[in-house]
Simulated assay, not measured.
Amino acid sequence: MAPTMMKAAVCKEVGQPLVIEEVPVPKPEGRHLLVRVQVASLCHSDVSIVTGAVLGGPPVPLIIGHEAISVVEELGPDAAKYGIKVGDRVGTPLWQDWCFECYECKEIAPQFCPKITMKGVNAPGYFCEYTTVDAATAVVIPENTPASPVQLSPIFCAGVTVWDALSRACLKPGETLAVVGVGGLGEIATKYAQALGVKVVGIDVRDEQLIGVKEGGSADEILNSRDLKLTEVKERVRELNKGRGVDAAVVTSGSKPAYLTALNILRAEGRLMAVGIPGEYVPINMGLVATQAIKIIGAKVPGQIGTAACLDFCHRKGIYPKVHPRKFQLEDINEMMDLMKAGKVDDGRMAVQFF
Rank of each mutant, 00 (worst) to 15 (best):
Y126F: 15
N334P: 08
Q38I: 09
V50I: 09
V90C: 07
K229N: 10
K242R: 13
L18R: 00
Y259P: 06
I108R: 08
V233K: 03
P26E: 01
K234R: 15
G181Q: 07
Y82M: 06
C170I: 02
P146G: 11
V37H: 08
Y259I: 01
F354T: 09
R206C: 12
S48P: 01
T161G: 05
A290F: 15
E22L: 12
S225T: 10
A109W: 02
A68V: 05
T131R: 04
R168I: 02
S253L: 13
G217A: 09
G276E: 06
E280W: 05
A299K: 00
F100E: 12
K81I: 10
K344C: 10
Q16E: 12
A109M: 06
Q96D: 02
G76Y: 00
M1A: 13
L330V: 05
V133S: 05
C128S: 13
I141N: 05
L260D: 12
A135E: 02
V25L: 02
G186W: 00
A169R: 01
G303V: 00
Y130K: 03
C43N: 05
G270F: 02
T145D: 13
E13A: 12
W98D: 10
N241W: 00
E175V: 05
I141S: 05
K242F: 11
A136Y: 04
G306E: 04
A158I: 01
L34E: 01
G217E: 03
V60N: 03
E221Y: 09
P26Y: 00
A219Y: 05
Q304T: 10
K229F: 04
E269I: 11
C310Y: 01
A249N: 02
A268L: 07
E280A: 14
I297M: 13
A158T: 00
G202D: 04
F112C: 07
T291E: 08
R244G: 04
L75G: 07
V35T: 11
I333C: 12
I319G: 07
K234I: 04
V201I: 15
V90M: 04
G216S: 12
Y281A: 15
N241E: 06
V140L: 11
F328L: 04
G183E: 03
R238P: 03
G306A: 07
K327H: 14
G276M: 01
R244E: 12
G76T: 07
L185C: 11
V233W: 12
R326E: 10
S255R: 09
V140G: 12
P124E: 08
T231K: 15
E187R: 14
G125K: 06
A351T: 04
I116D: 04
T4N: 14
V200C: 09
A248T: 00
V19R: 11
T261H: 11
V150Y: 02
S218E: 06
E215K: 15
V25H: 02
N285S: 15
C43P: 03
A248M: 03
G318E: 10
V39W: 02
A193M: 06
Q353N: 11
Q329V: 03
G306D: 06
R267F: 02
I222W: 07
M273R: 10
V160H: 01
K229W: 03
Q111V: 08
F112V: 03
E107K: 14
E29D: 10
P61Q: 07
G56K: 03
V250L: 15
L94M: 15
L62S: 09
G287Y: 12
L240Y: 14
G343C: 08
V160P: 09
A290M: 14
